[in-house]
Design a protein around this nucleic acid. Structure first.
Lengths: 211, 211
DNA sequence: CATTGATTCAAGCAAACGTATGAATTAAAC
DNA sequence: GTTTAATTCATACGTTTGCTTGAATCAATG
């Protein structure tokens, strides 16, 4: 039996380092050194650097999307037969990842940053995997269509896209808001942040369709 | 006299390759080979790989921000003594970069992608340079404060941040919208895209302040 | 205690990396 | 036409890269 579980330590360390810098700039030597394991352990347990990358991704991606879907289902259940409120749908979409970013120590916050890295630095194989992940967004599109029956299908996707933009950019570039605003924005209040973001998105969804 | 201008060719090639992949995964050998110049040319003309990176950034960043500021000033001039319309301000902010993405061959479209790379993959030195660049956003914050006198200062920065999110995410991840929507969104119509985006942002700015 | 299968380890491989160098080449100045 | 400075070139240096290997170590089974 392996007490410290080498495999898991490698995943944690790799996740953390990949969250901060590009994949190719993080070497296996750096990962294994920081993890306190032998260099060869990565290739023994995962096969290659690319495979390690995929393993890091898979470990938590499923959980994240399940959490979002659960929130959506709860919102729909509360609504009974009627359509779920717009606010609740968008809240279910952006709340889990933002919450995860504020869970230091659990590894979830690091994973969210890691996801941001994958978005821009992923291998083609990884991109495909992420695009398949977006299949999990379909229930959200369907719920939105029920709540906003007047909005064309394409328009729903556009605005869903914009809402994801708010979420992803806030996750990866919140530091820049600090620079722009001169520090007058309170970045620590997660609940207020989520409320602000969802409020912005709700208004955007309710905007008139451009001619 | 150097007819093909080695320096410029290197900048163009580096910009293009860096736009597509992370900095550390693009080698000088790859750049120089593709540019058709000698390997040593980079270190001769720029000094180092990092310095080349900075040179690529500097070459066009100023132009982009000047273009935005010009649009803002035009909008303010049209408004006379009154505040500029919200739509015009946000349009001035997001229009240039989005337009640049649709100028194939000019190098501008590649630069916008390159900027997206810098956001997530820049050296600390580069990050600082970008954060200094955001100083150019202050005129926009000021214009917004005049147009929306009831909105608290911090709220203005939050919503400015969200608007930048729409822009950046749309630039870097438009391809994903295609995957989510199953291709029913027309990504080619730039004017419609800008109108949609600005419309979304305007509604977000006009949303009530969360309790 | 001996055996077996799973892991860890130190060491090393070939390849690719950024950078440096001195000679060859080019273009302009005189 | 000779001189001078700027540029290009082939080549090489020292590191670092991802990955492999065969022996050593470990935990559990018989």
């Amino acid at each position: 039996m392996r007490r410290p579980d080498t495999k898991e330590i490698i995943l944690d360390t790799a996740e953390r380092l990949f969250a901060g810098r590009s994949f190719s700039s993080v070497s296996l030597r750096e990962i294994t050194a920081e993890a306190g394991v032998n260099l060869a352990a990565v290739n023994y347990h995962f096969g290659s650097k690319d495979a390690l990358l995929l393993a890091v991704f898979r470990r938590r991606a499923v959980d994240l999307n399940r959490e979002r879907l659960n929130l959506l289902r709860e919102a729909e259940a509360r609504a009974g037969d009627g359509p779920a409120p717009l606010y609740d749908i968008l809240h279910a979409l952006v709340c889990p990842p933002i919450r995860w970013t504020q869970q230091p120590g659990s590894g979830q916050s690091v994973f969210i940053q890691f996801m941001g890295r994958v978005r821009t630095d992923g291998t083609p194989e990884m991109r495909n995997l992420m695009d398949r992940e977006v299949g999990h967004l379909q229930p959200f599109a369907a719920a939105l269509a029920r709540t906003l029956p007047g909005l064309p299908q394409a328009e729903i996707y556009w605005r869903l896209h914009f809402t994801l933009a708010l979420m992803h950019y806030t996750i990866t570039d919140l530091r820049r808001l600090d620079a722009i605003s001169g520090g007058i924005c309170d970045l620590a209040d997660t609940d207020a942040l989520i409320a602000r973001m969802v409020g912005f998105a709700v208004a955007g969804f309710e905007a008139p369709v451009a001619a």
